[in-house]
Design a binder for these strands. Structure first.
Lengths: 114, 114
DNA sequence: CTGATACTGAAGCATTTCCTTCAGTATTGT
DNA sequence: ACAATACTGAAGGAAATGCTTCAGTATCAG
């Protein structure tokens, strides 16, 4: 059986690094939309928007299906939280490091310098 | 007075989109490090690593100060959570949309189809 | 059937990214 | 004083990115 493999973080963050693509993600939080609908507010050609959409899809951030002549796109929140988790884990690691500093300070001079 | 302006999300996500730069961020969660220390584990020249560092600094993810001939770099978690918050806000928005669907379903057919 | 709609594909072009090498400056250790 | 260390700057090149336009294929509406 084929294993699902999470999109690499590279593609995920790269996809989020463009304002046009973030705008699309933002629009999709309100529900599924067609390619045209996603492209409409953007100051670029439909083709360009479709290319951005391809990037989002490659990153796993959106899935899409074509019915008739319209392709409907949906946001995949799993990919979104995948990125969030990476960031959060690093922030936690920093906290842990500060905690260790606290422990160190508490352990080495518990009763110096009154 | 000069206002602090948060680094644009563009630069933030772009900075995180590279594995070498994420490795640096990861290393910095364990505490401050010099340019050489950050570059050492990476399969590239010191110059290349320094360039990556410049990207991280431009994105606001790291701050650095030079003492003598060594520049010491520190992770700035504020920038990190800035990116996290954007993602989280979108995920929340999706949840809200689903909630509204639930409300809609509850409101429109509270007693149809038993 | 005809025309409008909704993409889709291919090509081309300017800019940016990621890396290289080579050279230079400022410290520090002996 | 001399050499090693730790960057720093400049230049260049291969590849990726973000557009564009032009042309094509389905699909739907009248």
């Amino acid at each position: 059986m084929l294993q699902y493999q999470p999109p690499p973080l590279d593609a995920l963050f790269q996809a989020l690094a463009d304002p046009a693509r973030r705008a699309m993600v933002e629009r999709l939080t309100a529900g599924p939309a067609s390619v045209s609908q996603l492209a409409a507010p953007l100051p670029m050609s439909l083709t360009a928007a479709a290319q951005h959409l391809a990037v989002l899809e490659a990153a796993g951030l959106v899935t899409s299906a074509k019915v008739g002549r319209v392709r409907t796109c949906t946001l995949d929140t799993a990919a979104l939280s995948q990125a969030e988790q990476w960031i959060n884990a690093r922030r936690m690691a920093v906290g842990a490091q500060l905690d260790r500093l606290g422990d160190y300070l508490a352990a080495t001079k518990p009763d110096d310098e009154p």
